[in-house]
Nucleic acid binder design. Structure first.
Length: 419
RNA sequence: GGGGGAGUGUCCCGAGCGGCAAAGGGGGCGGACUGUAAAUCCGCUGGCUAUGCCUUCGUAGGUUCGAGUCCUACCUCCCCCA
């Protein structure tokens, strides 16, 4: 990527300015296309999970910015390719999913996208095709003859994703090996169907995308383009979007809004500015000001990051509520109504609920054994009082407005609500 | 087809003379210090109705008072030869 390139299109201006671009096959060419208007670009998402998590957020934002700057975003559902699996350097071949699971996952993912993009039939309305539509009916012989002849095995063998597997002597099945052919074919197909000339994706997709461009040239499309976003890691090098509890889901039923807000609030200082640019839509000069805050003041920036990023996914109201719950919990030590809560039968409390069982029910610990260990380490609190006796019992006297607050460590809180 | 090697705590890597709930590390969680940060230090890191019981070392059998460890068969993966 050339440093002295100055984009004229809104689309690339925003992307470059906000740190979305890792590699691009031809910035100037793409810039001209974007400037001419109605740039159609796509990103593929596989359907391996019932929802999307923070790891896909950069990609989602790319599509959102495209739409905001006058382009047409296409979110390709990999209903077909999910049945194959990307080699992508992982040692383990991906588990093959059933058709029903894939269909269900697709539904969940649609929900997420509808919060970020405007769908419809208009010129800049987003579309969500599924490559199962064309891959599913593909005839093997026809595919080999029309498409397969354009692929060079020599080239494919030299690609990092493949090379890595070969070098590690880790098995790479023919099935996986074909993944990139199908993905390349998707690009050509989307060009034909939607006039899509740009494929975006994470930096690990570079090889696959370029293969698509290449296939396009051989099959007579116009010039296609590739643009990848940087692989996101936290300042200390960990992958984004994973916590001990699992992935940071963008679906409130899989991760409470409060926890989502907390995820951003707890990012490392060094990441705050970068994340504000990528995951919020605040103006960059405003972000520069926030980023410049030093010491404890950077917490203000992180709170803004959390609220803005949460508002994007869960709506402004829910985000404000999460921010308020956090403020009450951490800054006042008060009991906030909107902490994640778990319902429990009143009778259980009346009869006296053992603390070990209570924490397991709240989902804060995985087993009574873990609860015991945490108590020993001073990690569990009931209504902000550190537990010292694992045989303690929660009774009606512990309820305030039918609620007991259970805490694991300083940050994780759940309200147990008697009903 | 023939020969050689490997599979360990359901996060990963990895030690393991027949007494093993199984060394060590990474990761994670908790505590201290801070600012709900980073770095550092300390503790924890199979399950349970718990001085006991149950389930774990690829799968199924066997030898033994006792098997992750020895024997047999099978499964999976890797290497070499054909």
């Amino acid at each position: 990527m050339s440093d002295d390139f100055r984009p004229r299109s809104d689309f690339l201006s925003v992307l470059l300015e906000r740190g979305f671009v890792h590699q691009c096959s031809d910035l100037e060419g793409l810039d001209r296309k974007a400037e001419a208007g109605e740039l159609v670009a796509y990103i593929g998402f596989d359907c391996t999970a019932p929802s999307l998590h923070v790891g896909s957020l950069v990609q989602i934002m790319l599509l959102r910015w495209l739409q905001k700057t006058g382009g047409k975003p296409v979110a390709l559902m990999g209903g077909g390719t999910t049945r194959v699996g990307d080699p992508s350097g992982k040692d383990q071949a991906r588990q093959l999913l059933s058709l029903e699971t894939i269909a269900a996952n697709k539904e969940g993912i649609k929900q997420i996208f509808s919060r970020f993009l405007t769908f419809g039939e208009g010129k800049t309305d987003a579309a969500m095709p599924d490559n199962a539509d064309w891959l599913g009916t593909l005839n093997y012989i026809d595919f080999l003859r029309d498409v397969g002849r354009h692929f060079s095995v020599n080239r494919m063998l030299s690609m990092d994703s493949v090379k890595l597997r070969l070098e590690r002597e880790s098995e790479l099945t023919f099935l996986e090996f074909n993944y990139m052919c199908l993905q390349a074919y998707d690009f050509v197909e989307l060009y034909k169907r939607h006039g899509c000339i740009l494929q975006m994706g994470g930096s690990d997709q570079w090889g696959n995308i370029v293969t698509g461009i290449d296939l396009g040239r051989r099959m007579g499309t116009e010039q296609l383009y590739a643009l990848t976003s940087p692989l996101l890691t936290t300042a200390s090098g960990a992958k984004m979007g994973k916590t001990a509890q699992g992935a940071v889901w963008l679906d409130a039923s899989m991760l409470p809004v409060f926890d989502y807000w907390q995820y951003w609030r707890n990012c490392e200082d060094a990441d705050a500015g970068r994340f504000l640019k990528l995951f919020t839509e605040l103006p960059v000069d405003e972000i520069a000001r926030l980023q410049a805050l030093g010491g404890a003041e950077i917490n203000e920036a992180k709170k803004i990051l959390a609220t803005e990023a949460t508002a994007m996914v869960h709506g402004r109201e829910a985000a404000e509520a999460a921010a308020e719950a956090a403020r009450k919990t951490f800054e006042e030590g008060a009991l906030a109504e909107s902490l994640p809560s778990v319902a429990i039968a009143r009778a259980e409390v009346t009869a006296g609920l053992g603390v070990l069982a209570a924490f397991v029910k709240a989902g804060l610990v995985a087993s009574t054994g873990e609860a015991r260990r945490q108590i020993k380490g001073g990690g569990l609190k009931v209504n902000d009082v550190t537990l010292t006796d694992e045989r303690a019992v929660i009774g009606e006297s512990d309820l305030t407005d039918d609620v007991v607050k259970l805490s694991l460590g300083k940050k994780r809180h759940v309200l147990l609500r008697a009903v």
